[in-house]
Design a protein around this nucleic acid. Structure first.
Lengths: 252, 252
DNA sequence: GTTGCGAAATTGGTCAATCCAGTGTTGACA
DNA sequence: TGTCAACACTGGATTGACCAATTTCGCAAC
């Protein structure tokens, strides 16, 4: 597209060369010439194509990698990120650290997202999404004495609900916010409390969704997260909210 | 789940030099030695400090800039992003384009977020957050014949509600998702429909929040977004969802 | 003909030195 | 005392080279 002359403010006719790389890839993706898993042209070719130097190309690719769009493997090439839609937790982590987000605030945002997701999941009532949720619930009951493994099932259960909402945007958001909580939860879960009751709550949420009762699903999820928030608050009292995951840019 | 060896997930010890830069900045932020608006050490010094070359430092800084953590001004320096907490729309735009998010899906996620925000705003009932909302509503009624300006007030109203939720995480999420919609909305709003009715709906939302009636606030916001979704669907029929804003990394 | 292995080509990762382009400061001059 | 031009500083970008991981492919052995 040609530069539109009606630009309200700062005349950015001179674009940053690094952004030019990002925009170029964006264009290729937009046009469908590049999809998840695809490999893009080598840095050197890209450099000559765009008429910029290789370090510049690399800068743009680093930016894309930071946004979770690409992954580079030395010797192999640079690829568009495959797998399910994901938003890295990095940006949120930085925001949390910079502005001192409270754990309560994070939990509140999570509550909004997951309560909505649970409601949608119940409304949709997709049968094939129920099995994964049920499996994680039984997994919880089976690991009441193993907090670490229990937490894994916990995480997966909540992800399964978000997935059952059948909305990838919501799923990505839920995972982004949740990862902020879980990352450090791993450390404190050892002296956790009342895993039995926690498993029961999850079961009730599952049943509500299975029964296609959105209102009950929302209510159960709401009280569950409220209790979880209180429980975690008692586990660790005043740790700062901005805790960075072990790998900032992209983690599993 | 035995993944093939190319997709394993534990190269923790292997540190990319660029990531080292990111991590270093993250550490400084975490320790409170760097806050919003602060200026970073010059690239050259940073390079010698970390024992890497300057291009490597630049790569890391580009990654940070892509995450919205830093901003660089030629000749001045690199600064930690100031202002209110923001999540760039870039990552979500790419995700939308890559995975073909539907406009309906985006609206649905927005609905979850903004309905929750409206509810919280009504629960909180912070007096000093009401004025901005009221102002935007009157602004809408004053520009019923000027769709472009009307849209500006529309955007600001929704942002004011998210701000009134008094949860910066929620605010950041709302803005991130909303920006996906608004960016292209600008183009189609010319032949918009029923600005009067739209303004009325916004007024009802405002009144519900002002009356500290969370349930009504949620309901009004819900039907408003539902109608807005339908309206926009009729404006433009089948455009792809992945439309990139004019400036990918950080917009005004 | 098939298989195994290793050398070579490919590709990303890094470094060094150099120049350019804005920005801010400072000190000389009016 | 006030102005403004020169200068040091900082990010932006380039060229060229080398290293390391991966892939590819041909050659030799079976």
């Amino acid at each position: 597209m040609p530069d539109n002359k009606t630009r309200d403010e700062a005349p950015l006719l001179e674009i940053q060369s690094a952004d030019q790389v990002v925009r170029h890839i964006a264009l290729l993706i937009e046009r469908g010439e590049l999809g998840p898993g695809d490999r893009l042209v080598p840095e050197r070719e890209l450099a000559t194509e765009l008429g910029v130097s290789r370090p510049t190309v690399r800068a743009g690719l680093h930016a894309l990698a930071a946004m979770g769009v690409t992954e580079s493997r030395q010797g192999a090439g640079t690829f568009i990120t495959g797998g399910p839609p994901r938003l890295g937790a990095g940006p949120l982590s930085f925001l949390a650290a910079l502005h001192g987000f409270t754990r309560d605030q994070i939990f509140e945002a999570r509550k909004v997202l997951e309560v909505g997701a649970a409601g949608l999941a119940a409304e949709r009532g997709l049968a094939d999404r129920l099995a994964p949720m049920a499996e994680e619930v039984t997994g919880m009951f089976a690991t009441l004495t193993d907090p670490q493994t229990f937490l894994v099932h916990d995480v997966r259960f909540h992800r399964a609900i978000a997935a059952a909402s059948d909305n990838p945007v919501l799923l990505a958001l839920v995972e982004m916010v949740s990862s902020l909580v879980y990352e450090q939860r791993r450390m404190t879960v050892e002296h956790a409390i009342d895993l039995k009751e926690s498993a029961e709550m999850h079961r009730r949420i599952y049943q509500a969704i299975r029964d296609r009762d959105p209102e009950r699903a929302r209510a159960e999820m709401s009280i569950h997260l409220e209790l979880a928030r209180a429980a975690q608050a008692s586990e660790q009292l005043d740790l700062p909210a901005g805790v960075f995951p072990s790998k900032v840019v992209g983690a599993s």
